[in-house]
C-alpha cells in the first residue's frame, strides 16, 4: 500500500501529511464546538444534552479503533507488514483513552439524567469490558519484549477477541438493558433533528481525524525511538571494538 511498509517512506509521507491533518482536525473541532454551542437545547435535558456531542463520537471511536486494530494486526500477520503491527500497537492506547472518555462523559451525563453515576446496564457494562480488553492487549505488548513475537501473539488475542466480543455483547444485552437504543443510524431515517445532527456529524469527523493524527504521531515516535536505540547500539559496538583494539595493541606491545 503506497510502499508504506518501508519506515523511511512512511516518515517522509507522514511528515508532509501531518500538518494538513492537524489543521483539518483543529478546524473541524473548532467548528464543531461552535455549532454545539449554538445548537438548540433539548427541551427535556436542557444544556445537559451538549455532553452527548462529546460522548457519542468517543463511543464510536472506542469500538471503531478495536476493529481498526484487528485489521492492522491481520495485515501485519498475513503480509508481514511491519508498520501495520506498529499501527495496531499504537492504536490500542488511543482506543483505551477514548473508551475511558466515553465512560467518564457517560457518567457525568448519567448523574443528572438518570440520577446515578453508574448502572449495571448492558451498554455501559459491555463498554467497560471493552476497556478491560484494551488493557489486556496493551499488557501483551508491554510484557513480551521481542516485538515480532508480541505482534504474532497480539494477533491471536485479537482474533479470539473478535469471535468473543459479539458473544459478550449479546450476552450482556440479554442480561440487562436500560440505555436508549441507537438513534443515529436506523431504518426510516435518523431520529435527531437536523440542527443537532449537523453538529454531531462534524464532531464525528473531527474525532476521526483526531485519531488519525494521534496515530501518525505515535507511530512516528515509535520509529524514531527504534532508530535512536539502533544508533545507540551501534555506538556501543564501536566503543567495544575500539577498547578491544587498544587492549590488543597493548598486549602485543607487552609481548614484544
Amino acid at each position: 500500500m503506497f510502499g508504506l511498509a518501508n519506515p523511511t517512506k512512511f516518515m517522509r509521507f507522514s511528515s508532509i501529511l501531518l500538518p494538513y491533518l492537524m489543521a483539518i482536525t483543529l478546524s473541524l473541532l473548532i467548528t464543531g464546538m461552535y455549532m454545539v454551542w449554538n445548537a438548540p437545547e433539548d427541551y427535556l435535558q436542557g444544556p445537559l444534552s451538549r455532553i452527548l456531542y462529546i460522548h457519542a463520537p468517543a463511543a464510536y471511536l472506542a469500538q471503531g479503533i478495536y476493529v481498526f486494530m484487528a485489521l492492522a494486526n491481520f495485515t501485519g500477520f498475513i503480509w508481514r507488514h511491519p508498520l501495520a503491527d506498529m499501527a495496531a500497537k499504537n492504536a490500542a492506547p488511543i482506543g483505551a483513552v477514548f473508551t475511558a472518555l466515553t465512560l467518564l462523559t457517560g457518567m457525568m451525563w448519567g448523574k443528572p439524567a438518570w440520577g446515578t453515576w453508574w448502572v449495571w446496564d448492558a451498554r455501559l457494562t459491555s463498554l467497560l469490558v471493552l476497556f478491560i480488553i484494551y488493557l489486556g492487549y496493551i499488557a501483551i505488548w508491554q510484557v513480551i519484549e521481542d516485538q515480532v513475537k508480541a505482534a504474532r501473539i497480539a494477533t491471536i488475542l485479537v482474533a479470539v477477541g473478535l469471535v468473543n466480543i459479539p458473544i459478550i455483547k449479546f450476552s450482556v444485552d440479554w442480561w440487562n438493558t436500560l440505555h436508549q437504543p441507537a438513534s443515529l443510524i436506523k431504518t426510516g431515517g435518523s431520529s435527531i433533528h437536523s440542527s443537532m445532527l449537523i453538529a454531531l456529524l462534524i464532531m464525528f469527523a473531527a474525532y476521526t481525524f483526531l485519531f488519525v493524527c494521534l496515530l501518525f504521531i505515535s507511530v512516528r515516535t515509535e520509529i524514531n525511538r527504534r532508530r535512536a536505540r539502533a544508533f545507540e547500539m551501534r555506538v556501543l559496538q564501536q566503543n567495544i571494538q575500539q577498547v578491544n583494539q587498544s587492549t590488543d595493541a597493548a598486549l602485543n606491545h607487552k609481548d614484544q
Binding site: 478491560i132 501483551i140 488475542l157 479470539v160 468473543n164 450476552s171 450482556v172 442480561w175
Partner: peptide, 13 residues
C-alpha cells in the same frame, strides 16, 4: 486481565 472478559458469557448463562 486477558481471560476474565471472555468468561462473562459463561458466567451469565
Amino acid at each position: 486481565l486477558l481471560i476474565l472478559p471472555l468468561y462473562i458469557p459463561t458466567l451469565i448463562f
